[in-house]
């Protein structure tokens, strides 16, 4: 896959300029990715900002063995998992158990209709998957990485990923059907 950094020589730029470039290039997808992990926009915002600050501090150590995009994904996923493991998350999860998928301002009739649609059910079902399945499904189907790329991003071998993908899909089907989703 041709990536944006192929055309942009970030190594010849100041780190600050490179970060601005990366934010504009990947900020949107990273924040959406983080949301699929933490299911909370406020936390997704904090974590995403943190990802780019981390990227800035580590930029000089980047070896260039993989695409910057994969590297940013690795940082984002690790940060998200750190958060999910944190005491803070566990504490607030009691009071903040469920956040709606759509943003808080989505209150129009049209959006209500969408919320009841199959797509909404599918999206909700994906977010309800256990984390180990969700991350593979998200990276494979949503972010469209290959299993090899996912393997390098989350550090799990491809065989295990294949298994998780199959099980994740089956589990997803189960949840989706329970919600009344149609094939």
């Amino acid at each position: 896959m041709s990536t944006a950094e192929d055309e942009f020589d970030w190594r010849s730029e100041r780190n600050e300029d490179a970060i601005v470039y990366f934010m504009r290039q990947y900020g949107e997808e990273i924040k959406r990715l983080v949301y699929t992990f933490v299911k909370n926009w406020e936390q997704a915002e904090d974590i995403t900002q943190d990802v780019f600050v981390t990227l800035y501090t580590k930029l000089d150590t980047f070896r260039g063995d993989s695409a910057v995009r994969s590297w940013i994904y690795t940082i984002a996923i690790n940060r998200s998992k750190d958060y999910l493991r944190s005491w803070h998350h566990r504490k607030i999860s009691f009071t903040d158990k469920w956040m709606p998928l759509t943003s808080a301002s989505s209150t129009t009739i049209e959006e209500d209709v969408i919320q009841n649609s199959d797509n909404k059910m599918l999206a909700d079902s994906v977010l309800e998957l256990p984390l180990k399945y969700r991350e593979v499904v998200i990276l494979y189907y949503y972010k469209q990485f290959s299993l090899k790329e996912i393997s390098s991003i989350i550090g799990v071998n491809e065989g295990t990923l294949k298994t998780r993908l199959i099980r994740g899909r089956n589990k997803l089907q189960e949840i989706y059907e329970k919600k009344g989703g149609r094939e």
Binding site: M23, G27, E28, I30, K31, R32, Y35, T36, W41, A44, T48, L101, T102, S103, S106, I114, N119, K120, L122, A123, D124, V126, V137, I138, Y141, Y142, K143, Q144
Partner: peptide
């Protein structure tokens, strides 16, 4: 196979970052 557009639409049609 349409998860990309489905999730993006369901999350928000506006820029989030």
């Amino acid at each position: 196979s349409n998860l990309n557009s489905i999730l993006n639409d369901e999350m928000s049609t506006e820029k989030v970052f």
